[in-house]
Design a binder for these strands. Structure first.
Lengths: 207, 207
DNA sequence: ACAGGATATGACAGGGCGTCAACTTCCGGC
DNA sequence: GCCGGAAGTTGACGCCCTGTCATATCCTGT
């Protein structure tokens, strides 16, 4: 037996990870099929074959498993964002790359969710602020701060700017997914130009 | 007896309206205190003194009363938005007025909600797309379309632009509410400049 | 004053929630 | 190997919420 896989090779650890994944996957399906409102903890756990009590060994509530799903998404996206930062040398380039990456990511996720969903019901939209999302926000803001530091961008309110960028990306992204064909390049172009165009016009902070 | 008030003066109509209002007000309080998740239909109805069954004469579910609350907010804002449109003669003026009006509205609402809320718990954020919100979106988009028609703005994708503006307003608005003192003017300045500055840089539609 | 329709009431059946004592499975020490 | 105990799973249970419905109450128009 090799040493490398020791950390996760215990039977206990394995099933723990597997069960958590099974619950998350089942939850994603159930939320997609029934909507957040009508989905129950038992709908989720039933699909895994586990007992109802087991659910509560992994999550405290339906709400928490939903948060975990969202966090999972942000956690998967963050390294991509990081890569954009490292691959680009100009501020403009970073912003465009990041937005393009986000839209591609969205389109990708969209496909995998699409499969399960029955015809269009109007499910309300639930948004949570998870720790990973907080980190994404910080990463974007810090990128702006560094750009300002280096003189690559004017000295503006980085918190507002990061909030605005994320907001634009999310909303334009949603709209993009409604259209056929899904055109991530056009959407990226729109969002990027809006932000980069607006940047020089923003009010400057006192130094 | 005068004729004018007949439409709403019947006792039945009065209590109907009063009960609906009572339920909505109670719901707002309960959602603020307990969060959407843990609030129950009975928590809401208990606070009104009505019987549990009565709730279902007015709303089909907790979800629906929540939607009604959101719709109510949008419905109260829409005439303000309309007034901005009628009071302004330039596109730039309209946008600034609309955003300022929205931030003032937000700050106002914020105060009335604030009272009930116990110290910061991390409630997930629920967003619904109500009919009134849809109308707000359309109103904003149509304002853009008219501005384009008149040559007051470049020929850009009005749907994306409206989505982006609303997104920026919402997100920057949220951030604004977190800061002390709440400065609606600074937030308006930021959002307005971002959008108006970005506008000329946007990709043009083929004619 | 009265008949009839509209609305309010609260008890009730159904079911989801979260817990817990009993059980099973795994791990480390001998 | 084998055993003692820790870790994890199970499903039945009590609690509470949900949505309904027969009944009672209250308008309203005549």
């Amino acid at each position: 037996m090799s040493h490398v896989a020791v950390l996760t090779s215990g039977k206990r650890e394995q099933t723990k990870v597997a069960n958590r994944r099974a619950i998350l996957d089942a939850a994603r399906e159930v939320f997609a099929e029934l909507g957040y409102e009508s989905a129950t903890v038992r709908d989720i756990i039933r699909r895994t074959g586990l007992a109802s009590g087991t659910f509560y060994n992994y999550f405290r509530s339906r709400e928490e498993v939903f948060e975990a799903l969202a966090d999972d998404g942000a956690a998967r996206f963050r390294p991509i964002l990081r890569a954009c930062w490292e691959a680009s040398n100009s501020f403009d380039g970073y912003l465009r790359a990041a937005i393009q990456a986000y839209f591609d990511f969205l389109a990708d996720e969209h496909e995998s969710w699409q499969a399960h969903r029955p015809a269009g019901e109007r499910h309300p939209r639930m948004t949570v602020q998870t720790p990973e999302m907080e980190r994404v926000f910080e990463e974007v803001r810090d990128a702006f701060l560094m750009a300002i530091e280096r003189g690559g961008a004017p000295r503006v309110d980085a918190d507002y700017l990061a909030a605005a960028c994320i907001a634009v990306a999310r909303q334009v992204g949603d709209q993009m997914l409604e259209r056929r064909p899904i055109d991530t390049v056009a959407a990226t172009d729109f969002a990027t130009r809006l932000i980069l165009g607006g940047l020089p016009a923003l009010p400057r902070l006192a130094t």
